[in-house]
Amino acid sequence: MSFDIFNPQVSTVAKGLEGKVITLVGSNSLGKTKQATRMNKPFYLGFEKGIRAIAGIPFLPINKWSDFKKINKQLTDPKTLDKAKEIYQTIIFDEVYTSALYCQDYLCKKHGVETIGEGKDGFGLWKEYETEYWSEIDKLLGTGYTLVFISHVEETKEGKHIPKGDKRSIKPIIDNSDVVAYLQSNGVDEEGKVIKSSAWFAETDKWFARSRFDYIDTYLEEFTAENLEKVLADAIEKQEKAEGVKAVSFAEQKESYTSEELSYEELMEEIKDIGIKLNEADRLEELQDIVEKHLGVGKKVTECKKSQVQVMSIILDDLKELLTATE
């Protein structure tokens, strides 16, 4: 696709759980992992050992950050993505705080320091940690899996319950979540059996929760995998009726967010063709001015590397404009 503000894409809402990002927040023994594993075709990323009492769930052991990187590559690599998605639909990331500690340990060992704050000659490895953590999470986003992030809870000075973790790990996950559900215990019944937890999808002065869906019921009395899927489906259906829109498939929604494909070979060929035409029109000096504006004095497009396709595409647009003005 090419960009044209006079022929824009129109935003859509996708039905179903495909491509949705869900974060479950709460203390232990609320059913976060149990219910997540009951969702469609699960694969468990266990930074914690939350499935020791749950049988039949596909997983690979994660005891260090490099374990996760290797698994994540197979889950997200374009060469293996379709095959992986035939087997798995729900990727369960359990849990955020522990995964962040693994990432920090990975970088400490890489740089030979004890703590994340000691690297880079005392300036700390914070930026590298932020980049490393986000780059792996970003690979999962947009793949079409249903992503379920599980987060423990911590209490602020004001007594509010929020997802546990530093801003470099928990914030990008929260910011990209379609739903952040805060789970609340309901204790036990008269026979001493655990009553299923409830879920909240709106923030209060007592806890953090949120949803991108304006029409979602903010309270789910019984938190189960089926009820979670239903409350999201109902929210989208209500939006369709209230706003007169039609929900689309995840594939259709993803297509509308796809940027133009930039081929190094095609860009180079087109730039050369336009260059020949501009030379014939005696506009070679203006052509060079455009190239040097973007690449630097004395630089040539033919010297560009494949990593420079973005700037090549901008140069091509400017050259096209110059050629149009010449004709």
Rank of each mutant, 00 (worst) to 15 (best):
E303G: 04
I290G: 14
E270G: 00
F250Y: 14
D217I: 06
S249Y: 05
V297S: 09
A225N: 00
S259R: 12
E280M: 04
Q288L: 13
E221F: 00
L284T: 15
D289H: 15
Y264Q: 11
N227Q: 04
E303T: 07
I276G: 04
L220Y: 00
Q253L: 13
Y257A: 11
Q288P: 13
G244V: 09
Q239D: 03
I274W: 03
E243H: 06
D234V: 08
K299Q: 13
M268K: 07
D289W: 11
I271F: 07
K272M: 04
Y257F: 09
E240S: 02
A281P: 11
K299I: 06
V248I: 10
E292I: 12
N279T: 11
E292H: 05
K277H: 08
I276H: 09
S249Q: 05
Y257Q: 14
K277R: 15
G296Q: 03
G275W: 05
K241H: 04
V291S: 13
T224Y: 02
E266K: 15
V291L: 11
N279C: 04
V248S: 09
D282M: 14
Y264S: 06
I216W: 09
D214P: 02
I271P: 12
K246N: 03
E285V: 15
G298H: 12
T258F: 00
I236R: 08
T302S: 14
V301N: 12
I271G: 03
L267F: 07
V231T: 15
K299M: 12
K246I: 11
T302W: 01
V301H: 07
V301I: 13
I271Y: 08
A225W: 02
Y215V: 01
L287G: 09
G298N: 09
D289F: 14
A242D: 02
Y219R: 13
T218M: 05
I276Q: 11
